[in-house]
Write a protein that binds this DNA or RNA. Structure first.
Length: 476
RNA sequence: GGCGAGAUAGCAAAAUGGUUAUGCAGCGGAUUGCAAAUCCGCCUAUCCCAGUUCGAUUCUGGGUCUCGCCUCCA
């Protein structure tokens, strides 16, 4: 039985979908004016993991992850680059897809762009206005009247009084209450036509918060199961979404709110404003994408995750152990002939996993406990030990199948273990040739020469492993 | 200032009212021409102070420290 930690109630709750057998999930995606950084990678991977586990659990899942392609920063960046909004956003949407694909992130079922849902937003703003929750301010913006919505603060645990008392809430000109937020921003003369839409309140563009409310309810309904995003979106973004959606539809918006923890650098949140971020593509130049995915899934999704080369190296070593176990199983029993580890279709798909098998049962229990991936990964290591010990084809197949649920260990072990050749590194042929020379030296009992070659390769980052069946190599 | 999360071995990271987490590193052994990989064994923990309890890392209270949100942010 799946339990999910719900930010709304601040405890774990059994997952009970609105429609039995189905699950609707919305995750706040990227604002596309730059490359994704590791913090974005975490959201992508974490909710991909959630998506996969829901599907593995038999739910018919509809996963929506939006793209914000209209916003102040986008407008600013496009102006700086002297290019159109569309050209800018499309470029970064393409880049985001490249990064997500590399990390093994499955595409969501829907990836709505804000600019395609302006009519739905206008409709919603009109409803809010007629419900007495929105007003047109003197400067032409349409704002949400926060104090008119009773439940405001229920997600973030803040009261309006607390918020008002906060030193950092500034009173801005045309708002009735400093906490009111913009639903519709009136157009400014100097802005290009590309960022102006007609509306009953004059030309303008949508505020950020209304985008998600509109896209969510359009694609998943006015009331859906799961809404996710980074912990920093809890307030005000998700709080405002609730105010908008529930204020407009007069029904509960979302049942389970999930928030992932931050990626940190030196114990500090990684963010654009702090300038301490690493882009995904930057990190992928140095580390295998699966190592990055493993690094993310090795921690619980709600915990902070410190980024450093040392931690990535550690993750790489750990993942190497898992792949080594699979490789050993193939070599030891020639599983490929029986197609067990390779591509056995029924085990490739989640449905093929026998969840009553002890390791699988432990894995499932961990995942059902609020997506406890560290525990699930620990099961993978126990299984790897079992594979190494028994050389059991079944255990190896199980290891690959369970890891597959997390989007891990699906590549040919050899490809993983021998991958990562940097520029100037030895190519496979050169390594093979050296190995042949060394084998000849060994046959001639010229161990000094054999050791010299091994040392030479090791210095080049190549580790040789002699076994009864021959010499294999991997990159350190 | 308000609100929230957290403090576990050398590092990372789970769980648990009493019994092995797990990975990396380290130590000893097996194996190996020597290694590597693997296996077996071992070593390092539960921030501080009270309380509840037969027993607390785990529950309660207080303290210290860290981080986050309150402004765009995944």
């Amino acid at each position: 039985m799946l339990e999910i930690y719900n930010t709304l109630t601040r405890d774990k709750q059994e997952f009970a979908p609105i429609v039995p057998g189905k699950a609707g999930m919305y995750v706040c995606g990227m604002t596309v004016y730059d490359y994704c950084h590791l913090g974005h990678a975490r959201v992508l991977v974490v909710f991909d993991m959630v998506y996969r586990w829901l599907k593995a659990s038999g739910y018919d899942v509809t996963y929506v992850r939006n793209v914000t392609d209209i916003d102040d920063k986008i407008i600013k960046r496009a102006a700086e680059n002297n290019e159109s909004i569309h050209v800018l956003t499309q470029r970064f949407i393409d880049a985001m897809h490249e990064d997500a694909d590399a990390l093994g992130v499955q595409r969501p079922d829907h990836e709505p762009r804000a600019t395609q849902y302006v009519p739905q937003m206008l409709e919603m703003i009109a409803t809010l206005e007629s419900n007495g929750l929105a007003y047109r301010a003197a400067d032409g913006d349409v704002n949400y009247a926060v104090r008119k919505f009773d439940g405001y603060g229920k997600l973030s645990g803040k009261s309006l009084e607390d918020l008002r008392a906060g030193e950092r809430v500034e009173v801005t000109g045309s708002k009735n209450d400093p906490l009111d937020f913009v639903l519709w921003k009136h157009a400014k003369d100097q802005e290009s036509d590309e960022v102006k839409w007609d509306s009953p309140w004059g030309k303008g563009r949508p505020g950020w918060h209304i985008e998600c409310s509109a896209m969510g309810s359009k694609l998943l309904g006015e009331h859906f199961d799961i809404h996710g995003g980074g912990a920093d979106l809890q307030f005000p973004h998700h709080e405002n979404e609730i105010a908008q959606s529930e204020g407009a539809h007069q029904c509960q918006y979302v049942n389970y709110w999930m928030h992932n923890g931050f990626v940190r650098v030196d114990e500090e949140k990684m963010s654009k404003s702090l300038g301490n971020f690493f882009t995904i593509r930057e990190v992928l130049k140095k580390y295998d994408a699966e190592v990055v995915r493993f690094f993310i899934l090795r921690a619980h999704y709600r915990s902070p995750l410190n980024y450093s080369d040392m931690h990535l190296d550690d993750a790489k070593g750990a993942l190497t152990r898992l792949y080594t176990a699979l490789k050993g199983a193939v070599v030891g029993r020639d599983l490929s002939r029986h197609d067990t580890v390779g591509l056995k279709p029924d085990l490739q798909e989640y449905g093929g996993v026998d969840w009553s098998e002890p390791y699988a049962a432990r894995f499932k229990a961990a995942m059902d406990d609020d997506f406890n991936t560290p525990e699930a990964v620990a099961v993978l290591f126990d299984l790897a030990n079992e594979v190494n010990r028994s050389q059991s084809a079944e255990a190896a197949a199980q290891l690959k199948a369970l890891a597959g649920v997390l989007g891990l260990l699906q590549r040919d072990p050899q490809v993983f273990l021998q991958g990562g050749a940097g520029e100037g590194g030895l190519d496979d042929a050169a390594i093979g040739a050296q190995i042949e020379v060394r084998i000849a030296a060994k046959k001639a009992k010229n161990f000094a020469e054999a050791d010299r070659i091994r040392k030479e390769l090791l210095d080049a980052g190549i580790v040789l492993e002699d076994s009864a069946s021959g010499t294999t190599w991997r990159r350190a």
